[in-house]
Amino acid sequence: MAVHFHEEDLPADVSFGDGPIAVDTEAMGLIPGRDRLCLVQLSDGKGDEHLVRFRRGSNFAAPRLKALLGDPNRLKLYHFARFDVGIMQAYLGIMAAPLYCTRTASRLVRTYTDRHGLKDLVKEVLNVDLSKQQQSSDWGAPELSEAQREYAASDVRYLHALKEKLDERLEREGRMPLAQACFDFLPARALLDIAGWADQDILAHDG
Rank of each mutant, 00 (worst) to 15 (best):
M1N: 13
A2C: 13
F5V: 12
H6G: 04
H6F: 11
E7K: 11
D9L: 06
P11W: 13
D13H: 13
F16P: 01
D18H: 13
A22V: 03
V23T: 04
T25Q: 03
M28I: 13
G29E: 09
G29I: 10
G29N: 11
G29Y: 08
L30P: 09
R36Y: 12
C38L: 09
L39I: 12
V40C: 07
V40P: 01
V40H: 02
L42G: 03
S43V: 08
K46E: 15
D48L: 09
D48W: 11
H50T: 07
H50M: 10
L51I: 06
L51K: 00
R53T: 07
R55F: 15
G57I: 09
P63F: 15
P63C: 10
P63W: 12
L65Q: 03
K66C: 14
A67D: 07
L68G: 03
L69I: 08
D71Y: 12
Y78C: 02
G86P: 01
M88D: 04
M88T: 06
A90S: 13
L92H: 03
G93P: 05
G93K: 05
I94P: 02
M95H: 14
P98I: 05
Y100S: 01
C101P: 01
C101S: 03
C101K: 00
C101L: 02
T102Q: 00
R103D: 03
S106I: 00
R107P: 02
Y112Q: 14
T113F: 12
R115V: 11
H116T: 03
H116R: 01
L118G: 02
K119L: 09
V122Q: 00
K123G: 07
K123L: 13
E124V: 10
L126F: 08
L126K: 05
V128C: 08
A141Q: 09
P142I: 11
A147D: 12
Q148K: 03
Q148W: 04
R149K: 12
A152C: 08
A153P: 02
A153V: 07
D155I: 05
R157N: 07
R157K: 15
L159K: 00
L159D: 01
L162K: 00
L162Y: 05
D167E: 07
E168C: 11
R172G: 12
R172N: 15
E173Y: 14
R175P: 04
P177W: 13
P177M: 11
L178Q: 15
A179S: 06
C182R: 05
C182P: 04
R189V: 14
L192M: 14
L192N: 04
G196Y: 09
D199G: 11
D199F: 14
D199P: 12
I202W: 13
I202H: 10
L203Y: 14
A204Y: 14
D206P: 12
